[in-house]
Design a protein around this nucleic acid. Structure first.
Lengths: 201, 201
DNA sequence: ACCTGAACACCGTTCAAGT
DNA sequence: ACCTGAACACCGTTCAAGT
């Protein structure tokens, strides 16, 4: 209650009219540029202006800012999921998990404010961590963690949702550092040390 | 460059005129109420309105939102620092650190958005993690960590600034959870497991 | 079916005019 | 020395009117 303000209907559908399709593409294109420059909190008005459409048109295509973010990240998310699925076949269960976690952090770092946007939308009512459009990421991450536990290289106490929440938190904490990539790596190191079974150092 | 937009002059000074002092107190009082209700991003205009002053008066007393946050948290920060100093005498080096980290997270959770506000201001240019008004917290946390390393209960690889940054990240990640206190505890557990020397579980 | 752009409500911040 | 409140710039969001 109160959380589901977004309609599920025509959320990302490809419009039928040619001009509408072109507008949609231009909006996504300019959103990418604006997100890269100002982060995902970039002005929607300016994105519409740069795309050469009125603000109402942006809202017609993307009812909420998150819908626009989703469109911008579509392929990227697919790649992260595929990477994870591939890593499930890696014989080094611990290394595979770490590699994927590193990629997940890099994903969350792709635009400033992204971790916050995902996290805010992710906190659905109740226990669920991840919103619909990030559910695949959650699944893959959970699978890698489960495999690590099953093979004994990962501690059994760590909850999947907590670990992924931590990944988001790490990206958030590193996003404005001058050396954000190295910063994120160090923080991820702290997390990974806690996940490893059998003693640190 | 570009970061130091704030003046250091009369930042939190007690005004000499009686009405000004009263205004300042009312502003802090109403800021507390508004922060508790809407988080530290609460409307400054409304805080001024509730305090019965014009917006310009708020800006005169508190040039930036962070100055107002600082005033609201003044005593709280003092308590956290004192707690840490007391814990430096505790014979259980590891337990003392964990107790303090837990209190630090609770502090950062006292208002929604606080972790973000502190973190944003904290990222001064260069390497420094913590802004002036949180320097004491940094000092105490560093002392507790150093003691833990010296006595061999804490791993030597973890940087002080990274650990404290992680504390902020944990508070941020837990702040909107329905069970934010329990959520923060679980995330802190992951961090602490990585800090403990000599094997997890 | 889709687009336009004015309209509305709500921000933070500044500053001339007052006392 | 301090306060007021209008003014400015910039938001997100809606919706009647168009094509």
């Amino acid at each position: 209650m109160g959380v589901a303000d977004r309609e599920a209907g025509s959320r990302g559908a490809r419009p039928r009219r040619a001009d509408a399709r072109r507008n949609r593409e231009r909006l996504v294109e300019q959103a990418k540029v604006a997100f890269a420059e100002f982060g995902v909190e970039a002005s929607l008005d300016e994105i519409a202006r740069r795309a050469g459409v009125a603000s109402g048109t942006l809202y017609r295509h993307f009812p909420s800012r998150l819908d626009l973010v989703e469109a911008v990240l579509a392929e990227q998310i697919g790649e992260l999921v595929e990477l994870g699925r591939g890593l499930l076949a890696d014989e080094d269960e611990f290394g595979a998990l770490v590699t994927w976690l590193r990629a997940a952090v890099a994903h969350a770092l792709s635009y400033r404010g992204l971790a916050a946007a995902v996290m805010n939308s992710a906190l659905g009512r109740g226990e669920e961590l991840v919103a619909g459009w990030h559910a695949e990421i959650f699944d893959v991450g959970g699978a890698l963690l489960a495999r690590g536990r099953a093979s004994g290289v990962i501690v059994s106490g760590a909850d999947d949702a907590d670990v992924l929440r931590m990944v988001g938190a790490i990206a958030w904490a590193a996003q404005d550092a001058p050396d954000r990539s190295a910063q994120a790596d160090r923080l991820l190191g702290l997390l990974v040390d806690g996940l490893r079974r059998g003693g640190s150092q």
